[in-house]
Simulated assay, not measured.
Amino acid sequence: NTTTNTTNCLFVGTHREIEKKILSQTEFEHVPLSVEPVANITRHPLRFLMRNRNAYCSAKKILQRTSVKCVVGLGGMASLSVLYAAKKLSLPVLLMEQNIVLGRANRWFSKHAKGIALTFAETEGIKPATSKLTSVTGNPVRHDIAMLHQSSLMSNEPSPPTLLVLGGSQGATAINRVVMKTIKQIEPRQKANWHIVHQTGVHQEQEIIEFYQQQNISHTVAPFFSEMAPLYQSASLVISRAGATTLAELACTGSPAILIPYPNSVRDHQRKNARYFEQAGAARIVEQQDNPTQTAKQLSNVLSMLFSDKTELTSMQKAMHAIAIPDAAAWVVKMITEITTVL
């Protein structure tokens, strides 16, 4: 993610607001494409074909205009348009798979790639013919978060105990509701000295603030936090979904976690991601039930148990630390260098 005197990065993506917001804060150029998701192929087949054909033509023009030397695909329909344009122009392609299940776009294009960077050695969906192209690089995270890996085992226990709640993306409303129900179920004497840092997403910030005020719990609440490193560093325990980037950040910062996998994730990848971390002893899984009260009951039991067992939290912290690949970005750059004639 660094621009040097010899290398420039161009991000080709979609019109999603989150992409615009993130990249507007950087020096990188962002070119959005109008693509149609695979889910619409049966409902709107003509629109699907036309939009993605146009996206492919636009991507081809972009690659020719910018004299690109290598294309890195991160999955999704927007990436497929660029990947097939790269293939047409005989440009080398590196695929990156952040989840433990190979995504649809990466699966479709894998036979054309020069390399596939994996986060997990156990990634599902790798065909024997393409297995020789894979390397386990880990999932790159921001530099300030990667740097915390060196000190994550030396951090002192936060005082007061601090719970970091990460909603704010897929299924944030469900996480928020469950957490509020959970806090209500925990005995007042146990939560009396807690501090809760809660990322709510865009719709429930004020509701969550009022809830913590009513519960008389120390809190820091915002729709999103741009500076995550100090929040991870101060957290005793994290409640989160099981998205790939968040998990990589949890590992680098040695943050014990309770994971609530998003139940509608494609090919159930969040549950499978979470299971890997649970089996490593780094996290506990709480399944999201149809009835939020049932989820809250399970979450309150796990939360109460972990906050009363410092030995277990320390063990989870060490397991998280062991899973981390803090130099993942360097490994990905190495793969790009290897497959590119001129970087």
Rank of each mutant, 00 (worst) to 15 (best):
T2F: 04
T4I: 08
F11N: 06
T14M: 10
E17R: 11
I18A: 15
E19M: 02
K20C: 04
K21N: 12
L23G: 02
E36T: 12
R43N: 14
A85H: 01
A86K: 05
K88C: 11
S90P: 02
L91Q: 05
P92Q: 12
V93M: 10
E97F: 07
N106G: 12
K111E: 02
H112W: 14
H112A: 10
A113H: 01
E124V: 12
L133R: 06
N139M: 13
R142S: 09
A146I: 09
S152V: 12
L153C: 08
N156F: 11
E157F: 14
P158T: 10
S159V: 12
P160W: 09
V165D: 03
G168F: 11
S169V: 03
G171C: 09
G171I: 04
N176W: 03
M180F: 10
K181L: 15
Q185L: 14
I186Y: 08
E187Q: 14
Q199W: 03
T200Y: 02
G201H: 05
G201I: 01
S218A: 14
H219R: 00
T220L: 11
A222T: 05
P223K: 11
F224L: 04
A229D: 10
S234A: 13
V238R: 03
I239E: 06
G243R: 12
G243V: 09
A244M: 09
S265F: 08
Q270C: 01
R271F: 12
R271N: 09
K272N: 02
N273T: 10
Q298L: 09
L303D: 02
M305C: 07
K310F: 02
K310Q: 08
E312D: 09
S315R: 15
S315Q: 15
I323G: 04
D327E: 13
A330C: 02
